[in-house]
Every structure is written in C-alpha cells, then in structure tokens.
Simulated assay, not measured.
Amino acid sequence: MDAWVWWLIAAVGLGIPLVLTAMPEFGMFAVGAVAGAIVAALGGGIVAQVLVFVVVSVALVSVVRVVAARHRGDGPQFSSGIDALRGRRAVVLERVDGGGGGRVKLAGEIWSARALDETQSFEPGQQVDVVEIDGATAVVM
C-alpha cells in the first residue's frame, strides 16, 4: 500500500476521537495527517512527510489556542439574578435607615432595604443606588 493511503487512514483514525470527544486537537492532527498524505502523493520522502505532519499540526494547535484564548475573555458579560441588581437605582417607598425595615421599589419589585451607612436615612420618594443584595435585603446609599 502506498504511504499516502496510510496517512489518510491515520487522518480518519484521528477524526474518530474528534467526533467522540469533541476535542479539536484531534481534528488539527487529522489535518496534519492529510498534509502528510499530500506530500506522500507528490513523492516526498518519509522525513518530509513526518516533518509536514508535525509542522502543520503544531501550527494549527498554536493558532487555534491563541484565537481561543483571545475570545475566551471577550464578549459581553451578562449579569443575572442578584448580580444584575447591583448598581441599579431604586425608589424609597418606606423610610430606609441603617437599622433596616425600610422598603424600596427595585426593578419593578418591592424589596426590604437598609442603608449602607448606619447614620444615613432616606425618605419616601428619594432615589437610591443599590450597593449590594444581602439575602432578601437591598443595601442602598
């Protein structure tokens, strides 16, 4: 059997774990094996075939890792749950002070609230900023 056929068999063999495990590295090695098959079909020696396989595989893995690392941290960061409420504005419905017991309207819902600074108090109608959510209580300032 010709060497290029062995390279194609290797490419298919590397493609199977790619499909089963979803590890893209196997796909890149399979592309390297196809490159080795092309070199073999063009009459290149075994050293050239292996060298092309290694260079193409390593180049693909390197490029994809750099691109993946760049995109991993990018993109919009969406907050949900109580994390989405931090930094929002609320309207005081019942007097809010450091001891708690007050109420605010936050994101269309009524929340119990307390002031971040225990010496501060907020009267009904005032707008406040939500600093954090402590259990079911909005901490405001």
Rank of each mutant, 00 (worst) to 15 (best):
D83F: 05
A115P: 00
A22Q: 12
A40M: 11
A107H: 01
M141F: 15
Q49S: 03
V56H: 06
G101F: 06
L85H: 05
G135R: 09
V19P: 01
H71L: 04
L93E: 03
V56A: 12
F78C: 08
I133W: 06
L42H: 02
G13R: 04
K105A: 10
V52D: 15
I82Y: 09
W7C: 11
W4L: 08
E132H: 14
D2Q: 14
A48E: 15
A35G: 02
G15L: 08
L116N: 06
F26S: 06
V31E: 01
L60M: 11
I110G: 08
V55H: 13
A11R: 01
V5S: 09
V50Q: 14
V5W: 12
G135L: 10
L85N: 04
L106A: 09
V55D: 11
L60G: 12
G36F: 00
L8T: 00
G100Y: 03
A115I: 01
M28G: 03
L85Y: 12
G32T: 05
A115C: 07
G36Y: 01
A113Y: 12
Q126H: 10
G32P: 00
Q120I: 04
G13W: 03
V140D: 15
G100M: 00
V63D: 14
D83C: 05
V131H: 12
D129T: 13
H71M: 14
A10H: 05
D97I: 04
E25H: 10
R95M: 11
L42Q: 07
M141R: 15
E109C: 04
G108N: 13
V66K: 03
P24K: 08
A115E: 05
R103W: 11
Q126I: 03
D2N: 04
Q120M: 08
G108W: 07
A138W: 13
I46S: 15
P17Y: 09
E109K: 04
V58A: 15
P24D: 12
